[in-house]
Design a protein around this nucleic acid. Structure first.
Lengths: 274, 274
DNA sequence: ACGGATTTGTGCGTATGTATA
DNA sequence: CTATACATACGCACAAATCCG
């Protein structure tokens, strides 16, 4: 059935792809309906669907039944800084009492919100390796689902999952609040803002971060939580905190939607060693 | 036709997905053939294909006609360091005359190779923005396709594309080699190794890097060059070099295959500002 | 609140092409 | 060369979501 070199669906795929890249189909615009493409090219609807599914898997178009139809995917460029030596900013900058991520996002004109939940879970393979504990050991996972909206009460858009994994002895460390009440900041299901950051406040002296970054496709859970379209890859940023004894004390695993957020590092260039 | 909540194909998808996650179907193992799954579940072959295509789009399985069949995707964890303050290592560390990436990869037991090609191209929108030049301005792009193999002459596996984009005045700067010959290192289609790095050698004093990292799906070109399976997202790491006058002198855009390589930063934790 | 129009989603059957061991 | 298994392609029917009168 295939006549030329390329399969039929590939013609539609290529045509639409170049139209999108040339901005003839700008972000947000409607993609022609399946039946209309089928008539236009003289192909069956299923053939058209193969092409559109490929574009969807490439993250270029969205899909939805009914009058939603298919549209060219929009992209956002919200930055989040993992290191900013210029401004002296770190996620865990000891000099700031404010949540670093919230401050960053607000500066860019978005209204942030976090939903926090703590669970005790057996260590997944990768986390166990990062923290140098046996796989399956029970760890505390403090998950923050981070959402933003534009001021005028638009619907919220989920941006990232930020999971802090800690071994039990660290998770159970306590602080004392204004009323003299003791609490475990790493087990609190609410925003905890401590001057210098939680880790430092509970008496841990981190001296090094090891950050590992990898793109991957999301799990069904993440698709749900981040409201992802099929074909949206996520970035996974794992920050391992190492204390002054060399112990790997915690892993902060952030998973962000690639079409919404950009991870940024600002680094000084080392001067030449003479 | 849909009986329960979930569509039929979703049962197959979920079953296979959990089998893979539980390592009952380990990486490299064969996925049952479409017809065998169709009989097992009592569904049509097309329905089975919907499930398998979704797993493919999620990057979990590969596909290939004939006796290749479908297999569970293998993953590699080759590190490449964007910053390593502990070891004093940078991509452009002025103290080292060796190619940083090659050294890193060799230390991990792989044999590296680069294919280098230089083209003059109009600046794509994002590169233009990073370098603060008008979009469409002609820039030099020095592309390095980076491949590795395991020692015993296995087939090579492409790992990443590393594109250096520079404005013309910088690209045309010259160095003098041992024989007294002048050449433009940023336009050479061969490995150029200079003590201190090319940028420094041609008289540019970079004082800051701005790194931006985003996951995305690859373009058809990248699929070709990196030999990517459908459903493999890539990471894009753009490093903008800023010199002591504040000028954005070059962009190093690295695109890496997510199932093969991990980007790593090792950073010192800043001490508290008292 | 309801119904119709539109558009995508699910699912089946069938046939033939193509790549690989 | 042949068997296997995926790839392409068609046609058809009905379900489900959404928007608009």
């Amino acid at each position: 059935m295939t006549i030329g070199q390329r399969p039929r669906w590939r013609y539609i795929y290529d045509d639409l792809r170049t139209a999108i890249e040339r901005d003839e189909l700008p972000p947000g615009s409607r993609v022609p309906a399946e039946m209309s493409l089928a008539e236009q090219y003289g192909y069956a609807r299923n053939t058209v669907r193969t092409a559109l599914n490929a574009l969807q898997a490439d993250g270029l178009i969205t899909a939805g039944a009914g009058s939603l139809g298919r549209t060219v995917r929009r992209r956002y460029q919200i930055f989040f800084d993992a290191a900013d030596f210029e401004r002296g900013v770190y996620h865990d900058n000891p000099a700031r009492a404010q949540d670093q991520w919230k401050a960053d996002v607000e500066r860019q004109g978005w209204t942030p919100r976090q939903i926090i939940r703590v669970d005790w879970l057996p260590a997944p393979r990768d986390v166990a390796e990062w923290l140098d504990v046996p796989p399956g050991e029970l760890l505390a996972r403090r998950r923050r689902v981070r959402l933003v909206s534009r001021p005028p009460s638009d619907p919220e858009m989920p941006l990232m999952l930020a999971d802090t994994w800690t071994p039990e002895d660290i998770a159970r460390r306590v602080l004392t609040d204004d009323q003299g009440q003791e609490y475990c900041p790493l087990l609190e299901e609410r925003d905890v803002v401590v001057r210098g950051g939680i880790i430092r406040a509970i008496g841990i002296n981190q001296v090094e971060f090891e950050d590992m970054i990898v793109p991957r496709m999301p799990s069904p859970d993440e698709v749900e939580l981040l409201d992802l379209q099929p074909g949206s890859p996520v970035g996974q940023h794992a920050r391992i905190g190492i204390d002054d004894t060399g112990r790997r004390v915690r892993a902060l695993v952030s998973t962000w939607a690639g079409d919404r957020q950009v991870l940024r590092y600002r680094l000084p260039v080392p001067s030449p060693e003479e």
